[in-house]
Structures are given as structure tokens and as C-alpha cells.
Computed example of a mutant assay.
Amino acid sequence: MSPLKPLRADAQRNRDQLVEAAREVFAELGTAAPLDEVARRARIGNATLYRHFPTRDDLLVAVYAEEVQALCAAGLDAAGLDTVDRARAYLVGDADALVDRLFEWLAAFVRHVAEKGDLARSLEPSVRRSELHEEWHAAMVETAGRLVDRARNAGGLQADVDPVDLLVLAAGMATADPARVKRMLRILRRGVVAS
């Protein structure tokens, strides 16, 4: 498979406007919202919408992929990690601050699951969906893993803390009231910090 050619500046701008409008429309009206409304809010014609996103699934994928990317980027940024400067991943920082950053990101992850989960669940079942879910899951596990490693290496977490366990527990909190989520995250934190 050959790599995709980069879009012209005007085409990229149209695509970005469509994804942003879709994010708003789907949040407001649900993932079954009329795609005409997405085009209208983006101030772009329907033909352009369908040229960029031939199916609803394509648009849902684009919106959700950006949500996952933003969540993971925020996690890496919170830990002082980025994809350009890998050397910073090995720096040891203040253990309490690194545990704070991990749990701030876990709170964002809970919000993501609560608010954006419908996007992922709305995709039509297909091999492509499975591959995308695996890719998105892997990105979140990698982000959580890097946050956990950083906090553990600084002495802030118990040695057996597993990032996947934290994600599973955090995902389970997504249906709870936000005040209860804060309480549950505090309880989880007490269970994993190094004594």
C-alpha cells in the first residue's frame, strides 16, 4: 500500500473544518446526526464532505482518531514526554508530581470514555473497526505505560502497578457521577502509590 499523498492546503483546511463541525454535531445531536448538518456547520458543500468522507464511518473514524490522538498527546505532554525528544523519557522527576500527572491523565481518560465512547461504538462492525480499535487501544496503553513507568521509576508507584489494570479500572468509572469518579480515583491512587 502506498502512503497517502499530503492534501493541498485548501483541501486540508476543508477536512479540518469538517472534522471540527462533526465533533460539535455528534456531541450535540449524537452520532446518527444528519451529515448535511455537518456540512452546513462547516460551511462546506455536501460534495466536498463526501469527497473527504465517503461514509459516516469514515467521518466517525476521523473524529474519534483525533480525540484519541489529543488524549494521548496530553498524557505524553503531562509526563514531559514527546515523540521528538525521547531522551526526556528517562529523566527522573519528583515522584509525587509524576503520580499527580498520571492521575490527572486517568481523570481525562475517564472523561474521554464517558463522553467519546459513543463515537467508537457507533462504527459499523468490520475488520477495519477491529484494527482501528486495536490501534487506538495500543496508543492509550502506550501513553498510560509511559506515565506509569515515569512515576514508578521515580519511586512514586508500587513495582507491580500495571498500566492496563489502571485503564480497565478507570474505564469502569466512566458511567459514574463525576464527583464519585474523583473519589474512586483517590481510592485507586491510595492503592497503587509506593509506601
Score class of each variant (00 low, 15 high):
residue 9 A to E: 12
residue 10 D to K: 12
residue 10 D to N: 14
residue 10 D to P: 07
residue 10 D to F: 10
residue 10 D to L: 12
residue 11 A to T: 03
residue 11 A to G: 00
residue 11 A to E: 15
residue 12 Q to V: 02
residue 12 Q to D: 05
residue 13 R to T: 10
residue 13 R to E: 11
residue 15 R to S: 12
residue 15 R to T: 04
residue 15 R to Q: 13
residue 16 D to H: 05
residue 17 Q to Y: 06
residue 17 Q to L: 15
residue 18 L to N: 02
residue 18 L to M: 08
residue 18 L to P: 05
residue 18 L to D: 04
residue 18 L to R: 02
residue 18 L to G: 05
residue 18 L to A: 06
residue 18 L to T: 04
residue 19 V to F: 02
residue 19 V to G: 05
residue 19 V to K: 09
residue 19 V to D: 03
residue 19 V to N: 04
residue 20 E to R: 14
residue 20 E to Y: 12
residue 22 A to S: 08
residue 24 E to V: 09
residue 24 E to N: 11
residue 25 V to Q: 14
residue 26 F to H: 08
residue 26 F to M: 15
residue 29 L to R: 15
residue 29 L to G: 04
residue 29 L to Q: 15
residue 30 G to S: 09
residue 31 T to R: 01
residue 32 A to G: 10
residue 33 A to Y: 10
residue 34 P to G: 12
residue 34 P to E: 13
residue 35 L to G: 11
residue 35 L to W: 08
residue 37 E to K: 14
residue 39 A to H: 01
residue 39 A to M: 05
residue 40 R to S: 09
residue 41 R to N: 02
residue 41 R to T: 06
residue 43 R to Y: 05
residue 43 R to W: 02
residue 43 R to T: 08
residue 44 I to D: 00
residue 44 I to S: 02
residue 45 G to D: 01
residue 45 G to S: 06
residue 46 N to G: 12
residue 46 N to D: 11
residue 47 A to P: 02
residue 48 T to K: 04
residue 50 Y to G: 05
residue 50 Y to E: 05
residue 51 R to P: 00
residue 51 R to K: 04
residue 52 H to L: 01
residue 52 H to V: 02
residue 52 H to N: 06
residue 53 F to Y: 13
residue 54 P to S: 11
residue 56 R to S: 12
residue 57 D to S: 12
residue 58 D to Y: 07
residue 58 D to F: 07
residue 58 D to P: 12
residue 59 L to W: 13
residue 59 L to H: 07
residue 60 L to V: 11
residue 61 V to H: 08
residue 63 V to C: 08
residue 64 Y to E: 13
residue 65 A to M: 04
residue 65 A to Y: 08
residue 65 A to F: 12
residue 66 E to F: 07
residue 67 E to C: 03
residue 67 E to M: 08
residue 67 E to R: 13
residue 67 E to W: 03
residue 68 V to H: 03
residue 68 V to Y: 09
residue 68 V to C: 12
residue 69 Q to T: 03
residue 69 Q to C: 02
residue 70 A to C: 00
residue 70 A to R: 05
residue 71 L to E: 03
residue 72 C to W: 01
residue 73 A to F: 05
residue 74 A to S: 13
residue 74 A to Y: 03
residue 75 G to Q: 06
residue 76 L to G: 10
residue 76 L to V: 01
residue 77 D to I: 08
residue 77 D to F: 11
residue 78 A to D: 07
residue 78 A to Y: 07
residue 78 A to S: 10
residue 78 A to R: 15
residue 79 A to D: 06
residue 79 A to F: 05
residue 79 A to T: 04
residue 82 D to V: 04
residue 82 D to I: 11
residue 82 D to W: 06
residue 82 D to K: 07
residue 83 T to L: 14
residue 83 T to S: 14
residue 84 V to R: 14
